[in-house]
Design a protein around this nucleic acid. Structure first.
Lengths: 226, 226, 226, 226
DNA sequence: GATGAATGAGGCTTCATTCAT
DNA sequence: GATGAATGAAGCCTCATTCAT
């Protein structure tokens, strides 16, 4: 039931068939590692459970079970259940923005920027599937808590980046002008991130391949051109 | 067991094929009505809260507050919090499938079928926004409960309908053959239903208008044709 | 489930095969009688349910179901669930003491007194099976409530009557002197009243017949005399 | 399913065949013990309260109060209030049957078997007074719950053992043939077990002494022989 | 006399969290 | 670093009772 596979990488046949860059999030040595790596492991475990069952429905005991310890023991490592969530989300967002910022500062054209952002997004989904899924499900009601206000900030930067690029594209004549830009923005944004709900790392398509297909759908459409 | 009962659906005679249907769902805090309408009102209220806060994070007290009664009083009308959820989802799915079946039995071509399904979907989002949002967020872990097994059935029919239509379209040469059909399926499906997360009835676009724009994006792409 | 047969007499093939004196507690005319008889009927129904499920486990709704009305409606007839219990027990005890007093004032010898008390007791069990069963199960913790203090009084009178008779018998040489009288008292008392837990009116033995057999067991023993 | 597990029974090596066993059951409010003994202590406490107030009337808070902890803390040790009851009853029945089986397999004559069973029964009442009292009061409506179906099994074995012995005795001419055997069975059975309702361990009579007196009453009668 | 709907207290249970060992 | 046991707040649900109709 509480399957909770150790998150992401270890079992992934690293750098396998699709020329994918293995993203070794944690390098656990033996069974149980120590120090800050242990922390990472526990967070990965927690993220899996949160993603699978929902934050509220996840009890600290379930996380502890999945980690092979007792509930109380988690409190040696973390202040609270909420702080685990916090750490999961913030470290995901940090990495996401590292990638996004690199793209945004690269001085690409609108279409290329969109392509790069989409590709980067799928890479993040690949690396942080659980965190992305949690983010999707929980961010709405989390924004009420002051502690998670950075989610709002991130959302705003996010919107600015995408919406801006789209508008730039419309102005440049590379994106259609007959569409409501906000609608388009939501369309593209959702289209990409919802994928986290079904994506499983190590599946038959690499994130880059999925990004490629998504991009041609979004940009060129599903219909055959007349 | 819990076979989706068909709700009386007073919302049904929804004004025509395109005119915005003002959401008459009930304005809490007005005088309470009696009889089976009261039940509907309470379910609508509950759905609103479930959608906003998530099923697990919603306490019966919150629902009762929103309905202007005490928590215990809800149990005069419903067996349990879960049965409220059940009734909300099943009556939504019943209505959804009425619309979908009408489309699927109309003998339309693949492209027209997709167009009709998307349009019908946005109409359902308009009518049952809360239920759709709940469905999106909760269906995954609900399927574990025997009581909600009908969600799995519905999902299967759903996939059959959409995937089948897409395949038909590829075979007929109206949809691109160079895409992974399952990927396309997920793309179209998610793209439509996630809209429930931001859609607000009574906004500036009617469901039909949103459907139209979504359809041209999905079918023809966002990019300007070369 | 909540079988709740209308109590005692009506269905009993009055004065049937065993030369039993029919004790017509209530003469209901048709389906639902009015006035004070209705009250009796409801109390009989309540007593059945209390006896079957236990006072605490019996909800007012169960009684109402058995009586064919809604829970709230009972409050037209009675102040509270507790007052139903009160009325059931006190009216039983009243009748019991009527019978007991007649016996005790008859000036019989010790053995004859015991015989008459036992017989009278089985008659009461026959007439008020439910009340007796309730009494057995609930009296202990009821005595805490001031309202039910008469239970304590009754118990004391009861003990005085039985214990006194036994002692009289020991003094008179008709009951064995080698036994602890209190133990004997408890033995006889319990032996009789517990029968309410399995006795069903209209069974194959009349109360008088059961009394007769019990008496020879208690007085003469189960073993064959050497 | 819930097969009566055998409790560790530290009470088992109960001092000899007649010397009063001082009830070492645990004196709440003393220092709490740890490990599986704590479980036993809590169960003993719970049994005491159940016996005194009835299962339904007993709130978990009352049990917790008696155990010197908060209501919720009980759930660290037990799944539910019902499972406490289950464990109390099943461990009592296990011990009871150990004793009964020893008697039944000893190849005694009918009268000696009855004597041994009665004596064993009073010993059980002495050791498990609370459990016996609970059993008396609650077993009837408990048998509806699948979880407690073993109570029915036990009752059947019980009846077989006693009734069989009585019939053997009648056939052998040691018990009276002029009595209804089932009536005799109920008489003897009830007569013994009801004693749990007034018996207090540490009273002036040892269980063996009470058994002896009960046996001469049951077998030889209360009346002086003519 | 009875109904339908609600109240409010309280019951069982869960769970994040703490802390001595 | 981890365990075992407990806390205390809160959650879902039940139920006796009330009352307008």
């Amino acid at each position: 039931m509480t399957t909770a596979r150790r998150a992401g990488s270890p079992e992934a046949p690293a750098g396998g068939q699709n020329g994918r860059v293995p993203n070794t999030v944690s390098k656990k040595k033996t069974q149980v590692s120590a120090g800050p790596e242990r922390r990472r492991e526990l967070l990965d475990t927690a993220a899996e459970v949160f993603a699978a069952q929902g934050y509220n429905a996840t009890t600290v005991r379930k996380i502890a079970d999945a980690a092979g310890m007792l509930a109380g023991s988690l409190y040696y490592h973390f202040d609270s259940k909420e702080s685990m969530l916090d750490e999961i989300l913030s470290s995901f967002l940090n990495e996401l923005w590292e990638g996004y910022d690199a793209v945004l500062e690269a001085g690409l054209g609108p279409r290329e920027t969109i392509e790069a952002l989409v590709t980067e997004s799928f890479r993040e989904i690949d690396r942080h599937r659980a965190a992305v899924a949690i983010y999707q499900k929980e961010s709405r009601h989390l924004t009420d808590l002051p502690r998670f206000h950075y989610l709002v900030d991130s959302q705003e930067r996010f919107e600015k980046a995408w919406l801006g690029t789209l508008e730039r594209g419309v102005a440049a004549g590379v994106f259609r002008a007959d569409l409501d830009v906000r609608l388009t923005y939501r369309f593209v944004r959702d289209t990409v991130w919802v994928a986290a709900s079904w994506y499983r790392p190590g599946g038959q398509h690499s994130p880059e391949e999925i990004a490629r297909q998504y991009l041609t759908m979004v940009l060129d459409g599903v219909a055959v051109r007349p």
